[in-house]
């Protein structure tokens, strides 16, 4: 489903060129559950933004469902995001003036879906996330865990194939953090491809496939054990 070939992303900071992503090759199958770990500045968020088409590569190619994305314009990338990708951010990024229900509804509205068709979809998502009695509340009236559930609801309401979560538990206490990660894992069990960027070792190891990043490179990938020189038997 996802194919990265020699993907690069560099930033000019002052007169220094920083390689946030340094020739990355990565292959992700549909339905996989990955965690990306690594120290700050190792490029894990840049990788997530790249996979989410929020950022454009400086070099290399990214294929999403066999579509080469590097040549696409912003409009086409927006359409791909809308139809295939859901985002969960550390700071939720909910619109403060909209209620929980309206925040979840937003992607459907932007996609131009008729109100009649929207209603059953949102109802299902709200029930699924156990937010029924909080649906009419604005984010400031919700707890952190509830806010992140609303954000997850918004991410999955368009039924994307890929769910990208950037430190989804970073602002949460351990109990709500675990609830959120369990919710994401349930969604993965239902078939969604899940990629979680995290600092938290305990969360990282729950993934079926763990990536470790250092200095813009994938230092280890549990699916492809490092080829260490082995002594001949």
């Amino acid at each position: 489903m996802i194919e990265l070939q020699q993907l690069c992303r560099s930033f000019q900071i002052g007169d220094q060129c920083v390689h946030a992503l340094d020739h990355i090759d990565l292959h992700i199958e549909r339905g996989e559950y990955l965690s990306v770990m690594g120290p700050s500045g190792s490029g894990k968020s840049t990788l997530l933004n790249m996979l989410g088409l929020l950022d454009t590569p400086s070099g290399g190619e990214y294929r999403l469902n066999q579509t080469a994305t590097s040549q696409l314009n912003e409009e086409a990338r927006a359409t791909l995001r809308r139809e295939h990708i859901g985002f969960v951010f550390q700071s939720y990024h909910l619109i403060p003036r909209l209620t929980a229900r309206e925040n979840i509804e937003l992607p459907l509205i932007l996609a131009g879906i008729a109100p009649k068709q929207r209603k059953p979809i949102i109802d299902r998502v709200i029930t699924r996330l156990a937010l029924t009695d909080r649906a009419a509340h604005v984010p400031s009236q919700l707890s952190g865990g509830q806010r992140q559930r609303v954000a997850i609801g918004r991410a999955i309401v368009m039924k994307p194939e890929l769910l990208l979560a950037d430190e989804p538990t970073g602002n949460l206490d351990s109990v709500s953090g675990r609830e959120v990660i369990e919710l994401l894992e349930e969604l993965n069990d239902e078939g969604i491809t899940l990629l979680v960027v995290t600092h938290d070792q305990a969360i990282g190891v729950r993934a079926k496939r763990e990536l470790k990043m250092i200095d813009g490179r994938i230092a280890s990938d549990s699916a492809r054990p490092a080829i260490t020189p082995q002594l001949a038997p």
Binding site: A78, T79, R82, H93, I95, P107
Partner: peptide, 16 residues
């Protein structure tokens, strides 16, 4: 600006 960023992440074209 952040709201605009969010709208774009949700797949809202620049025109919209």
């Amino acid at each position: 600006t952040r709201e605009i960023g969010l709208l774009k992440a949700l797949g809202c074209p620049a025109r919209t």
